[in-house]
Amino acid sequence: MTVTHDCSAAVLVVGATGTTGSRTTAQLIAAGHRVKAASRRATALPGAEPVRFDWYDPATFGAALDGADRVYLVPPVGDPDPAAVMLPFLHRARAAGVHRAVLLSASAVPAGGPGVGAVHQALPGLFSQWAVLRPSWFMQNFTGAHLHADSIREHGAILTAAGDGRVGFVDADDIAAVAVRALTDDRAPNTDLVLTGPEALSHDDIASIVTEVTGRHVTHRHLTYDDMRDRLAALMPQEFAAMLAGMDRAIAEGAEDRTTGTVQRLTGRPPHGFRAVAERELSVRAAPETGSTR
């Protein structure tokens, strides 16, 4: 596919400081695109134009949309009904001249499903050029700022209700690479794209790989659905906690035991495996004792 984009217009990245937003911003800039990096604090990112944006403050929408013709959408975190704030913004984006929208959803959420599934369902009726990225669970959940990563660092354990179920965990760098193509290729995908890594792994497999890479013993503790729901409910709204625990239960039943060739097809290269990502990210995080400044 030929990559073309009007460089006088900007790509608006909503959630530009997040796991996929920051990577999408960096890759767009590296490819020579003008980027408006939207976040609640208008955080400056190298090469991007910072702009304040808050899903719950429509007064921030106008400045964010000014001069943008494409938008990457990261839903508000932890909101069980993101459509309530996202759809008004998308109507305004269309009126402001945005003609392509790429939405971050999840492999477990189909069009019309819970949460962001309602936005997915509405997107084709709002924009003639669109894509919905439906990645599997992020590999960075075990290496970055996430409940699992925190539990690994603090307790040497991953706690889930996923049992022995396997997941095609995907690297956030690969999600961003697909997002860039979906945003800037001459032809929009105009479909939803299920993104996975190269293999399906259980959480026991993940624990073993993290143990081997870091040298610290990590285990996977198997929880019941009720235990997982209650654990999450102490950290987030009850409804959202129940939804996440339900996703673990679906994993245990085999819902995420798959891989797809989408990353290879859109980027021209194979997706990264979890061991490579763990070696890239966890070994660096563990490096202060060897003189690393990171």
Rank of each mutant, 00 (worst) to 15 (best):
T2M: 14
H5T: 13
C7L: 15
A10M: 00
L12P: 04
A16K: 03
T17P: 10
T17I: 06
T20P: 07
T25Y: 04
T25E: 00
A26V: 05
Q27I: 08
I29R: 04
G32D: 06
H33N: 09
R34W: 05
A38S: 04
R41V: 04
R41N: 11
R41C: 08
L45S: 04
G47Q: 06
A48C: 08
A48D: 06
E49I: 12
E49Y: 06
D54K: 01
W55L: 02
W55N: 01
Y56N: 12
F61H: 14
L65Q: 00
L65F: 01
D66L: 12
D66M: 10
D69N: 09
V71W: 02
P76V: 03
V77Q: 10
G78Q: 03
A84R: 13
V85G: 03
R94H: 15
A95C: 07
A96I: 09
V98C: 04
S105G: 10
A108Q: 11
P110S: 07
G112Q: 09
P114W: 13
G117C: 07
A118N: 02
V119N: 01
V119K: 01
Q121E: 12
G125M: 05
L126P: 05
F127W: 01
Q129A: 14
W130V: 01
A131N: 00
M139R: 07
Q140N: 10
F142T: 08
F142P: 02
A145Q: 15
H146A: 13
H148V: 11
A149H: 01
D150I: 14
I152C: 06
A162Q: 00
G168F: 04
F169W: 14
V170Q: 04
V170K: 00
D173Y: 08
L183P: 03
T184H: 06
T184G: 01
L193W: 01
L193E: 05
A200P: 07
L201Q: 05
S202A: 09
V210Q: 08
T211S: 15
T211W: 11
G215D: 12
G215Q: 15
R216V: 15
H217Y: 14
R221S: 13
H222W: 12
R229S: 13
R229C: 11
D230L: 15
R231S: 12
A234V: 15
A234C: 12
Q238G: 11
A241T: 10
G246D: 03
M247A: 10
D248C: 11
R249A: 15
A255C: 02
A255V: 09
E256M: 15
D257Y: 08
R258M: 11
R258H: 15
T262F: 02
T262R: 00
R269I: 09
P271K: 00
G273T: 08
V277L: 11
V284E: 11
P288Y: 09
G291I: 10
S292P: 13
S292K: 12
